[in-house]
Write a protein that binds this DNA or RNA. Structure first.
Length: 361
DNA sequence: TCTGGGGTCCTGCGGCGG
DNA sequence: TCTGCCGCCGCAGGACCC
């Protein structure tokens, strides 16, 4: 396990930036990409809007109170996927697809270990992406994914920051543990209750104490992350694990017949996607969120993988009837997982059939 | 003022088969 | 034949990320 050089590439305010390409007259204004319903939240805010305290995941109603002059743009997933392909296609072409791992629509990692003058290479890459697509990226370079990711965030937009592990330790000693990806609100709160509110304190806590409180795996992970150690490698191809479709209603819905119609519609859309990819799933699940925000999931694994809308909708409605919530429903969703390809599934069925035969004999 | 939609991964538990 | 152990799978929930 030699020394590695990893870059994290992150598109700046991605959805908002894609919208500005189509509507350059909005440049310099507060732009918020978001649905417009009463329960919508902000997907992306332009840097101008962020100055007013608007950020992703904030309820749109609140964002508009903070920044009433903002222009609201409804999300256009197809446009963002297309822009993402342009950016990441170029990055793969320039650096070699075996060195690039895309995670999510607008970011990814590059293994620069074997590349000479990594910083210069990434400076060129950022310029090429901007020239070809009009979109800007920020880049972080470090000895592992964790440091690279934090570095890419430091000088957004259009940043390019290289950091060693030691520099990261020193620079962020007084920072909140929340700086570290993977330490979210719950973990931060637990740490706070232990008197740990900085990364230096997290390091000083020691692995033993953390493992006691968080379990061996999570504890060790927290301790290592506090030292900016991370051994995850760049994985060029990552197969999808599940696909889902969910809807939050503007007003909670109590009528189960209506909910089953929505389930059927979601199953249709999901199966369209699965068929385009030639994928089948064996596990079908539902998600139900009630008015008080309690969220329940139910799942069933069926004998034969499927991408038939009637089968998916049938199982999903079955699960819903078994759950039979008496309270109004805020969100309903359908999920398909445990994927196999079409030919794999045929093989699985042959194996299963011969097992049955042996048992029968 | 409430809290989207798309995901991933982990944990704990219970059933089951060898 | 019974029992215990172990590993795997499926399920539910939770935390987290963009």
């Amino acid at each position: 396990v030699g020394r590695r050089v990893i870059a994290h590439v992150d598109c700046d305010a991605f959805y908002a930036s894609v919208e500005l390409l189509r509507r350059p007259e909005l440049r310099g204004q507060c732009v918020i990409v978001s649905g417009s319903g009463p329960r919508a939240v902000v997907t992306t805010a332009s840097y101008e809007a962020r100055k007013y305290g608007v950020h992703s995941a904030m309820p749109t109603a609140r964002a508009l109170r903070l920044c009433p002059q903002a222009v609201l743009i409804p999300p256009d997933g197809a446009a963002y996927r297309e822009a993402s392909q342009a950016v990441w296609g170029l990055i793969r072409a320039e650096l070699g697809e075996e060195l690039v791992e895309q995670v999510g629509i607008d970011e990814g990692y590059v293994d620069l270990t074997e590349i000479e003058m990594p910083k210069a290479a990434m400076r060129k890459l950022a310029a090429d992406v901007k020239a070809a697509t009009g979109l800007t990226v920020s880049v972080g370079i470090g000895p592992n994914k964790l440091v690279a990711k934090i570095a890419s965030d430091l000088e957004k937009p259009e940043g390019l920051v290289a950091l060693s592990r030691e520099q990261a330790c020193e620079r962020f000693a007084a920072s909140s543990p929340r700086l570290i990806p993977g330490i979210g609100p719950k973990t931060a709160e637990r740490l706070e209750s232990m008197g740990i509110s900085t990364l230096a304190a997290l390091r000083e806590a020691g692995e033993g104490v953390l493992s006691e409180r968080f379990g061996a795996n999570h504890g060790r992970d927290l301790y290592r992350r506090a030292h900016f150690e991370h051994d995850g490698h760049v994985q060029p191809v990552r197969a999808a694990v599940s696909q889902s479709s969910e809807t939050t209603f503007d007003v909670d819905v109590a009528d189960h017949a209506v909910l089953e119609e929505v389930i059927a519609r979601q199953a249709n859309g999901l199966c369209d996607g699965l068929r385009r990819k030639g994928t089948l799933g064996r596990t079908i699940g539902i998600k139900v969120r009630l008015a008080d925000f309690t969220t329940v999931t139910r799942a069933r694994t069926i004998e034969t993988a499927t991408n038939h809308p009637a089968v998916v909708a049938g199982v999903a409605c079955d699960l819903f009837r078994a759950y039979d919530p008496s309270d109004p429903v805020r969100l309903i969703g359908v999920r398909v997982a445990a994927f196999t390809g079409e030919e794999e599934e045929a093989e699985r069925r042959r194996a299963s059939a011969s097992r049955q035969l042996r048992l029968a004999v």
